[in-house]
Nucleic acid binder design. Sequence first.
DNA 1: GTGATACGCAACCAAAGGTTGCGAAAGGTG
DNA 2: CACCTTTCGCAACCTTTGGTTGCGTATCAC
Lengths: 114, 114
Amino acid sequence: MSTGIDDDLWSAIGDPTRRRMIDLLLAEGQGTATTLSARLPVTRQAVTKHLTVLDRAGLVRSTPAGRERRYHVDEAQLARAVAQLQSVGTLWDARLQRVKSLAEAIRRAENTKK
Amino acid sequence: MSTGIDDDLWSAIGDPTRRRMIDLLLAEGQGTATTLSARLPVTRQAVTKHLTVLDRAGLVRSTPAGRERRYHVDEAQLARAVAQLQSVGTLWDARLQRVKSLAEAIRRAENTKK
DNA sequence: GTGATACGCAACCAAAGGTTGCGAAAGGTG
DNA sequence: CACCTTTCGCAACCTTTGGTTGCGTATCAC
C-alpha cells in the first residue's frame, strides 16, 4: 500500500524556503521575487528559482505588472497540498495506533499466560 | 510570524524515499537496510544513508543483531513529526479561510456601494 | 534623457541523493 | 576447521538542486 502521495506537490512544499515563501504570500496576499527576498535569508535569484518550482507545481500563479511580476497563491492547489499533508499524518497516526494496541494486546496475552 | 516548524524533522520526512521507508518500517515493525532496499527502487547504500538521516532526526533507532542491524520507528518522535505536519496544514487552512472570507467581505462591500 | 528599480539569463559552487566497487565481520554447512 | 554466503561499512564518483555573483535589459520617475 503506497501513501498515494503526489511527490511533485510534496517536494514543492518540502523545502523550508518555499514553505516560508508560501507563508509570506498567504499573509500578504501577493508578492514579487524582490519583496519576498527582502524577508528571506536568500537572494532574489534564489527566490525566483523557487517561484519557478512552485509555479510548475501549480501552487502559485503570476501576472506581469509593469516592470514587476506579481505572484499569488493558487488557493485550490494549496488546499489540495494541505489535504495530502493531513492524509499522510492521518495514515501514520493510524499505524502508530495499531502498533500501540498490538503491543497492548501482547502485553495482556502474556499476563493471562502467567 | 514563523511557522514554528522544526526544519530538521521536516527535511527528514520531506524526502519521498524516506517517507516510504517509514511506511515500510511501520507496516512491518522493523527492517534492515537490505530488506528495505529490496522493496525500494534504490540501492542498499542509498537506504543506509537515509537511515542515517532518519536516525539523526531521531525518527528511527537501531540495534545490532549479529551480522545485521535492525531499525525500528521511534513512535514518540514520529508522533511529534505528524503533529507538525498537521499544524502546518491547519495554519495554511486557516489562512486560506481568511483569504476567502476577506474576498467575500470585499465583494459584499462593493455590492452595497453600487 | 538620466538614474534608479525590477527582472531575466548564464556561470559557477556546495550539498544531497544516488551509484559502483571493495574489504571485513558473522552465519551456515561440508 | 574450511569454505561459501550474507550483511554490513567505507570510499570514490556522478547528477541534481539550492544558492551565489555578475551582467544586460526593460520599465518607471524625474
